[in-house]
Amino acid sequence: MSFLNLALMAMVVALLIPLYEAWRDEDIWQTMLSLSSISSKAAVMILLVSVLRDDWMIGVVGVIILSVGNAGFMLLAHILKRLGDA
């Protein structure tokens, strides 16, 4: 088992922490925080898989998710804030 495989396993464990935090619902902004954490972690994991398999296409998908997905979450944060204000 190579080092990158082990690193991927460790990343899955790191992904479980914000997942647990999202399940333990207290405040919607805490859930939002864990969502942003999960999405950036998932994108970095996709990049690592692309390097692990030496696959250029997977890397492109990872970068697109990283850049566009975060923009979408900013939008979602504003919608949630509007919901709260009304």
Partner: peptide, 16 residues
Amino acid sequence: YHALVIRGVLGAIAAL
């Protein structure tokens, strides 16, 4: 509202 955010979590993990 929490389900809304968790749908985003599900989307990120599904993409992965």
